[in-house]
């Protein structure tokens, strides 16, 4: 499980960084999205991977570390998802504005020779 998760995070990050460095705004935004997926998974993983362990106590139950997983990273990841989503939406608007002003989807607002 650890191997699959880390490979997944690694692949997402690598693709995200590659796309982030590309010259088209659409590639940049997809890169940023992939990067934020990877980061969210990473935060989740930092609570240690446990199967069948809920983060919330049963009503009336006794807190037992062996039966429950750490709730903090899950709370953090929820916050991070919401913020990341909002920022992606904002970035999309700026991307469209830039496309409207310059007539190109190059990040510098003008085509470079050889692209």
């Amino acid at each position: 499980m650890e191997l699959i998760l880390s490979a997944g995070i690694g692949t997402l990050t690598a693709s995200g960084v590659y796309l982030l460095l590309r010259p088209r705004t659409y590639q940049v935004i997809i890169g940023l999205s992939l990067l934020s997926f990877a980061v969210n998974l990473f935060i989740f993983g930092m609570g240690r991977l446990r199967v069948n362990a809920p983060p919330i106590l049963d009503p009336g139950g006794v807190g037992d570390l062996a039966r429950y997983t750490d709730p903090v990273p899950q709370a953090l990841v929820l916050t991070a998802i919401v913020i990341g989503f909002a920022m992606t939406a904002l970035f999309l608007v700026v991307l469209l504005a830039s496309r409207g002003f310059t007539g190109t989807d190059h990040v510098d607002g003008r085509e470079q020779r050889g692209d």
Binding site: T25, V28, F91, S98, V107
Partner: peptide
């Protein structure tokens, strides 16, 4: 344009 870079 500056905003696009700043946000990214």
């Amino acid at each position: 344009k500056a905003g696009l870079h700043y946000i990214a």
